[in-house]
């Protein structure tokens, strides 16, 4: 996914000389072409994320469009105050390309995971969040958001994520995408974990006769309130699925909406419980262990529906 995104940014940079690309000493086998063809507008700032975000702000204040590339934890957690005070407070045209959403760094373990990022980015005024499910959606978003002039955070996986879509579709920022339809329940999802959910959906349909509507909320902020209400109303129980802490992520953001209405459905948040992931393993291994694989999701969803 990250290469597809970087390639799309490359195309934009070729067309628009106002675009800068900053990297925090990362991007091996991904950003070399940008460095080679736009040496003045590609800046490897070094291992210095606070300075990198400050520089991005200064460039944006002088009228540039800036993409900043690094691993999520370093990009947004090391330099969180720069993002809040410099980028969000000034409402600047800076796009944060965060690599390694969820547990995509697998064996590299907890320091490289991003399981609290949605919670801390969602609360920032002026910040928007885009969390594409696959590289087709990622490229559609980057193209569309080229004209967007405000702080933006992209929660990007890493590489070799399975494709959810077979071809590009009519993408709208802030608008949910219905991936499957069914009357038994609604399941909200976001990001590459959607692939596991779609596999779970097949099992649910074929083996449990559970037909769910599956809603991909690729825009986590501003979240598609209308779609959340539309597909939740009238249901006894709905689900959210995310590779993120159960605190503050997609589930929380849906809960914030549902608790404001009369007779809301019960919301089952399927996420990672509060706590560091202590086991070692690949992303797919860890998903299995934490109940986020297709089998785990199937089990939680089917048993929860049975016990309603």
């Amino acid at each position: 996914m990250r290469v597809a995104i970087v390639n799309q940014v490359y195309k934009l940079m070729k067309k628009d000389k106002n675009i800068y690309f900053l990297a925090g000493d990362l991007g091996y086998t991904a950003v070399e072409q940008i460095e080679k063809d736009f040496p003045e507008r590609f800046i490897n700032v070094g291992v210095a994320e606070q300075n990198m975000l400050g520089i991005a702000s200064g460039l944006a204040l002088s009228g540039k469009k800036v993409y900043v590339y690094s691993i999520i934890s370093f990009l947004i957690m090391r330099s969180y105050e720069q993002i809040r005070n410099d980028i969000c407070f000034h409402d600047l045209d800076v796009t944060l390309l965060g690599i390694g959403g969820g547990m995509s760094y697998g064996y590299l373990s907890s320091t490289h995971f991003a399981l609290e990022d949605i919670a801390i980015m969602r609360v920032l005024p002026n910040m928007s969040i885009f969390s594409p499910a696959d590289e087709i959606e990622a490229v559609l978003g980057v193209k569309k958001l080229y004209k967007y002039r405000h702080p933006l955070y992209l929660r990007i996986g890493k590489r070799r994520e399975p494709l959810i879509y077979s071809k590009p579709y009519k993408f709208e920022f802030g608008k949910a995408v219905i991936l499957r339809t069914g009357n038994d329940t609604a399941i909200f999802s976001s990001g590459p974990l959607t692939d596991e959910l779609l596999k779970a959906d097949l099992i649910l349909r074929n083996e449990f006769n559970i037909k769910a509507t599956i809603i991909n909320l690729h825009t986590l902020k501003p979240v598609d309130k209308e779609a959340i209400l539309k597909y939740s109303l009238g249901k006894k129980i709905v689900f959210s699925v995310e590779e993120h802490s159960a605190i503050g992520g997609l589930g929380s953001s849906i809960a914030e909406i549902l608790t404001q209405i009369k007779n809301p459905p019960r919301l089952k948040i399927i996420a990672i419980p509060d706590g560091f992931v202590k086991e070692l393993g690949s992303q797919s291994y860890l998903r299995k262990r934490l109940g986020l694989s297709a089998d785990g999701l199937t089990k939680t969803i089917s048993t929860t529906l049975k016990s309603k």
Partner: peptide, 11 residues
């Protein structure tokens, strides 16, 4: 200072 650097690079 980091923000100032952004301006300086741009100029």
């Amino acid at each position: 200072l980091p923000i100032g650097i952004g301006f300086a690079l741009s100029f």
